[in-house]
Amino acid sequence: MINSLLQISSSSSKISPVLFFGTLGMIMLALSLILFIIFHQRRVMRFQTKMQEMEGEYQKMLLRASIKLQEEERQRLAADLHDDAGPLLATARLYLNENLVNLDKAAQLQSIFNTKQIIDETIQLIRNISHSLMPPTLKNFGLESAVNDFFQKINNSGSINVNSRFHDYKNRLKPEKELITYRIIQELVNNILKHSNASFIHLTQHDVEDKIVLRLHHDGKGITQQEFIKYTRNKDGLGLKNIQSRLRVIHGDILYEEDTSHSFFKVTLDIPREEDEQY
């Protein structure tokens, strides 16, 4: 087109330069606009793809952490059953061997008594394993009671003061949501006990609009939100990754922060209530 226009321009000087340069300018503008849109969109799409890849990687990391936790839990269960329940039942079996009928009455009674004791012990052991998997207090009485029970056990150790106050927990969350929330609180408290060297932990609960807000205060060495994000994106920090993946399941949020007075650290959990959990 430009060549033709130049040809016209050279063959006849009568052609209006306004027409020639105007047309040329308009075409250049249109082409520039089209190219700009193409390159702009490519750049935006590259950025989006990169973001999605990063998100995918992060999801994979969380899933890996969750699988690892599951495997560890299974290993613990297997170890408990194999190392504790196994020998106990084997011992009970020894007491009840074929020779038992040939023993005198007193020895028989002694063997039966010992066997009964061992079976009771095994029952208690299995109950403990079962409780560690699903605390009965949580199932029967809800999150508040389960947390209080858990805190009571920690308080009994005498090394730290742990207490909780639930202000608006009249309507319970759904059982699976309660369990996840309980596990998150357990993990958070365990982390504080392990790493912070705190002298107290205080948990409060409030209902804010359509969500439950749980806040943990402690006076030990804590982490901030930036550090939390950093740890969850690192290869380490399995516990924190589990907190994150559990929160995703219940669509919750977490915020780690230091108190403005720099004397406490706070962890705030926002857990949205569903329609049928509202009151």
């Binding site: 016209i8 052609i15 209006s16 027409l19 105007g22 047309t23 300018g25 308009m26 075409i27 249109a30």
Partner: peptide
């Protein structure tokens, strides 16, 4: 867009000049 951009500028030329053969040819070329 390219078609409009390529032909649009010829409409800015005063209508009288289209009466001359050269500009009419140029207009048709474009």
């Amino acid at each position: 867009l390219i078609y409009s951009a390529g032909t649009f500028f010829s409409f800015f030329i005063p209508i009288d000049t289209h009466e001359t053969k050269i500009d009419t040819d140029a207009f048709e070329y474009i």
